[in-house]
Amino acid sequence: MKAVYTDKHRSHDPQFFLVRGQVRRTTEQPERADRLLKGLKDGNHTLVAPTEFGQGPRARVHSPEYLRFLEGAWDEWTQLPDYGPEMIANFHPNRVPGNYPTHIIGKLGWHTADTACPIGVGTWAGACASTDVAVTAAQMVLDGEDAVYALCRPPGHHAYRDMAGGFCFMNNSAIAAEHLRLKHERVVILDVDVHHGNGTQGIFYERPDVLTVSIHADPVGYYPFVWGYAHERGEGNGLGANLNIPLPMGTGDDGYIEAMAIAEKTIASFAPTALVVALGLDASEHDPLAALKVTTAGFGRIGAAIARLGLPTVLVQEGGYLSDILGANLTATLGGFEAAR
């Protein structure tokens, strides 16, 4: 399996992370990519540089106002007196009916769902590079590759059409799915990150052409807390095109594979012709943010289960944070996929 990667992600180097009232350095660091690259090397995967696709693929998913905000945010921020080293909102209007703000502080609150998405001088460049990685992988699949892995950083599945959140700025998995839609009428996004893919769900919640499936830790006591419940099935024309499978805290390999079997049945009923996997590796028993207990061997089983879906596949990197086992878990996932294919 080929892997798409660029080191342009390094321009995004966030520092701020608020955990239970304590400020810490974020776990979404550039070093994540280094450890994932080690996993690709150990799996003998060939690296491919991304093509620059411009705003087109991003604009199919994100609103014009949001893209303008992200592109110009840092320049506006630095016009403020005594501006800080990162952009972090001090209020979130929660979209109670009101007016779209014109001041940068107002726009920052409007377009961010939480404080876990600090914007710095290189965030826009890094996020754009990440979307190019995802779209390049999708284009390679459209051109005939069976499966391609996209090493995306920053991740994307918490980003809504016009809001950043949870380390995510633009929704790479959604953008890849929309690119596949250029040739495929029905696409499925299978999210195996430990956190619910709330941004992806929000983007497609009223659409019947993209099935969104998320297997994640129970949001009762885990991020994103207010989305990701089993009763959320879509709305309007999208009713029935969203499946959430929340798992009890501490679920291990066998429980996760049982959830994959449930997902497989729903995917088969939807009859898609292409697949995007929002590949979080943070369900690992060793991940610093994990609530689940998947082993390295378990990730191999997850990869094999994905392969057995039998669809042209784009695997988009989502979560998976700094642990000694991160690269090995990626090697195991892709290896399990290849062995089962």
Rank of each mutant, 00 (worst) to 15 (best):
G54S: 04
A268P: 00
N90Q: 08
G54N: 07
S63D: 10
D42N: 15
G165S: 06
V277Y: 04
L211Q: 07
V276I: 15
D324T: 15
D34C: 08
T296A: 03
T295W: 05
K107H: 01
H231E: 13
L315P: 00
T251P: 10
L309D: 10
T78E: 08
V194W: 06
L243V: 15
L211K: 05
R207E: 13
I306A: 03
T313S: 04
I119H: 01
F17W: 08
A125N: 14
A274S: 13
W124R: 00
A150L: 01
L247T: 13
P81K: 09
E235A: 13
Q22L: 10
V121T: 11
N94T: 09
A159T: 12
E258K: 14
I175E: 08
A134L: 06
S269Q: 12
A127V: 14
P246W: 03
C168W: 12
G319A: 03
G43F: 04
A332Q: 15
A278F: 03
S214D: 08
L281T: 14
A268D: 04
R35A: 01
D132I: 05
S269F: 05
A125I: 11
N237G: 11
S269I: 09
S130A: 11
R341H: 10
Q139Y: 07
S284A: 13
V48N: 07
S130L: 03
L239E: 15
P50T: 06
L47Q: 09
L243P: 00
V48Q: 08
D75W: 09
T136D: 09
I189D: 05
N242S: 11
G255T: 03
Y223D: 04
T115L: 02
E28D: 15
T295I: 05
V213W: 06
D253M: 01
S63Y: 08
G106L: 05
D114M: 04
R60N: 05
M1I: 13
R95V: 01
Y223R: 09
P30W: 05
P64I: 01
I215C: 02
G250E: 09
G240I: 06
K107S: 00
L243T: 11
H158G: 03
L37N: 07
R24C: 01
